[in-house]
Structures are given as C-alpha cells and as structure tokens.
C-alpha cells in the first residue's frame, strides 16, 4: 500500500471538520470548519492557545475523538481503519512508561499487543533504541532515566511498529528548555532519517518554527485554523538558524496570527 501511494496523495485530509462537545455549561465548539491537507513526509506543527482545538484535532486523527461532521481521512481511510492498519504512533505529553516494565519492555508493549513474534520484537526494540540514541538503556527501569530520556523512550515506543505517521501532543512540554532544544534537534534528525509524516502540537512559537515545514496557527472559541504557513526554511536546520532573519520573520507571522485569533474574541 505504501508503494502504490502517490506522492501527491494527502496523508491526512480534513474537509469541513466540526466537533462539538456537550458539557454541563452547554455545547463547546472545539473544532469549527477545519480544512487541512497534510502531505507525505511533512512536519506539521499545530500552535495556538489552550482551547484552540489543536490537541482535539490530533486526537481526531488518532480516532480518540469522533468529529461531529465533516470528513477526515488518514492514508485514504477513516481514522478508525487507519488505527487498525497501524498508520500512526502517538506520543503523549507525559512519557507514560509503565514503571513495572524496563525500557525495552515498554517499547515491546505495542509489539506484544500487535502480535509480533519474539525475535522480531527484540530486533525492533534494538533498532528504535538506536534511533533515539538510547542504546544500552533497554534493561533500565523508567525511574532510572531522566525526564528527557523517558520521553525519548516513549518516542521509540511510538516508532517501534513502523507507522508512517507520528502524532505528537506537546511531547516536550514538561521538559526544561535546554533538554527541549536538544530533543528538538534530535527529532529533526530522526525525521530526516525516517521520512515520517509528523503532526506536532505545541504552544511554543520557536519550537514550531524551528521544527516545521508547515505551521498551522489556531485560535479558540470556536477552535479553528486562522493561518497556515509553509516554512521556507531549508530541511537542514542547525540550532542557530533561530537567529536568522527568515526564522524571525516566520515567528513574527505566527505571532501575528495568534494575536489576530485573539482579537476576534473581544
């Protein structure tokens, strides 16, 4: 299926997507008329203040939420079918490693559930540990690792079953800035090496601009897309690209987009 897919076929496509939650305080319009196309191999960041629906949209792609109306396809399938086809790995804000499993055991978890045989499990664990630069830590328990290493292990877990899409919900939100910088750099390298399509939720402007080929700016009440920015930055991005003029211009446009979204509200 991977081979037959045309380069131009969108990996993720949302058309007129709406999602309303019924809460005690009345209906909340979490997503309003969202249209978005994500192509293969893109690195797409979703940025906006809390309540703008960026996480909700990611959860819709992962079939953790069901849209009220509109269409959403993942690899040409419904989100549910895509999940069954193991189309994506999902990285949550907290590493969520099982304390009673070693790092290798944690990475093995989805492989066990999906029914890979033992030899295959071991080979894949080794490979993804290498990919996130955690060789030799497979036998450690989560509490023996730093927060940054735990999050790397959780990324390895999401990569273990070879999904083409990686969905990341503020994966580095709980980490300090120095660790975050390093992990961002590593994530870019990982992306370049694996060619995955990445959906990345963040509320940090520099993080979004540094990582993305496409930045989706969103605003709250109702949650909607206010701007989609195609980044002109090159694929190769050293950390000091953040001091370049282009970088600052994109960051400025993102900030403007966020401010415009807020302006509507008043």
């Amino acid at each position: 299926m991977k081979d037959t897919m045309n380069q131009d076929t969108p990996v993720i496509e949302a058309r007129g997507l709406n999602l309303t939650f019924d809460t005690a305080d009345g209906a909340v319009h979490a997503l309003k008329d969202v249209n978005l196309t994500i192509g293969k191999g893109e690195f797409v960041s979703f940025i906006g203040p809390s309540g703008c629906g960026k996480t909700t949209f990611l959860r819709c792609i992962a079939a953790l939420e069901t849209p009220t109306s509109g269409t959403l396809t993942v690899n040409g399938m419904t989100p549910d079918q895509a999940r069954m086809a193991r189309a994506y790995g999902y990285v949550f804000q907290a590493a969520g490693l099982y304390p009673w499993r070693t790092i290798a055991g944690n990475i093995r978890l989805p492989l066990e559930i999906m029914g890979f045989d033992r030899a295959e499990q071991a080979a894949r664990v080794e490979r993804v540990l290498d990919l996130v630069d955690l060789n030799g830590f497979g036998g450690k328990f989560p509490w023996q690792l730093s927060g940054g290493m735990q999050q790397r292990a959780s990324i390895a877990r999401a990569l273990a079953f070879d999904a083409d899409i990686l969905l990341m919900d503020e994966p580095f939100g709980a980490l300090d800035e120095i660790v975050r910088d390093r992990l961002n750099e590593e994530l870019l390298k990982l992306w370049a090496r694996t060619g995955k399509t990445i959906g990345f939720v963040t509320h940090s402007i520099p993080e979004a601009v540094y990582l993305s080929t496409k930045i989706v700016v969103m605003s709250p009440r109702p949650g909607r897309i206010t701007d989609v920015i195609e980044s002109p930055l090159p694929k190769e991005r050293p950390l000091d690209i953040r001091d370049s003029r282009e970088f600052i211009e994109i960051a400025h446009r993102v900030r403007e987009g966020l401010r415009a979204g807020h302006g509507d509200e008043v």
Partner: peptide, 12 residues
Amino acid sequence: QMMLDQLRTYSA
C-alpha cells in the same frame, strides 16, 4: 486516561 488512550492507539 492517557495510558488508556495510548493502548487504544495500539487497538488493544
């Protein structure tokens, strides 16, 4: 809920 969601993404 996060851990349960995570297992759901594996279709557990």
